[in-house]
């Protein structure tokens, strides 16, 4: 049970990671579910003594990349105009708070995948550069350049609000 217990403890963080990658709550939980299932199937491949969280993040990230690529989805979410129309009827205050929430989601969603995952691992999940680079199988220099570009884009999107 220890393995399952450790996974359960990790779940709140994994859900957060998944949410920042996918934006959508259901997509994020689908991703977590697939990641848990894969982890249980491949539990023999996890080496006790190594970090389970990194291993799980890696699995989650790999499934996400596979899913996005398989679906051939465009990286940018289609319909910001529709979303704007949906909040148009709300009263001003609610609209403002919803807009703010959407701002971060939308800005993250507009990032290319490789920048989004780098930003998510370091800025949201708090991984050190070395850990994040290892998790993504990229050199640290590649990670930092993705972080720079991702952050610049986010600053542009979020502007002074950030």
């Amino acid at each position: 049970m220890a393995f399952e217990q450790d996974l359960l403890e990790l779940l709140p963080r994994l859900r957060r990671f998944a949410r920042s990658l996918t934006r959508d709550i259901n997509d994020a939980d689908d991703l977590c579910q697939m990641a848990l299932e894969r982890a249980l199937n491949k539990r023999d491949q996890w080496q006790a003594g190594t970090r389970l969280d990194s291993w799980m993040y890696r699995i989650t990230r790999n499934i996400w990349i596979d899913t996005v690529r398989a679906a051939g989805r465009r990286e940018h979410v289609a319909n910001d105009d529709d979303a704007m129309a949906n909040v148009a009827g709300d009263d001003h205050q609610r609209m403002e708070s919803r807009m703010e929430l959407r701002d971060v989601d939308r800005a993250m969603d507009r990032l290319p995948l490789e920048q989004r995952e780098a930003v998510s691992l370091v800025l949201v999940e708090g991984f050190a550069y070395k850990e994040a680079a290892a998790l993504l199988d990229i050199p640290i220099g590649t990670l930092t350049s993705r972080l720079v570009r991702g952050r610049e884009a986010l600053q542009r999107e979020l502007g002074e609000a950030a």
Binding site: R15, R19, S20, L101, D105, L123, L158, A161, A162
Partner: peptide
């Protein structure tokens, strides 16, 4: 801002 935005998920 990013950390605060996603923290409630946990």
């Amino acid at each position: 801002k990013l950390a605060a935005h996603y923290a409630p998920v946990t």
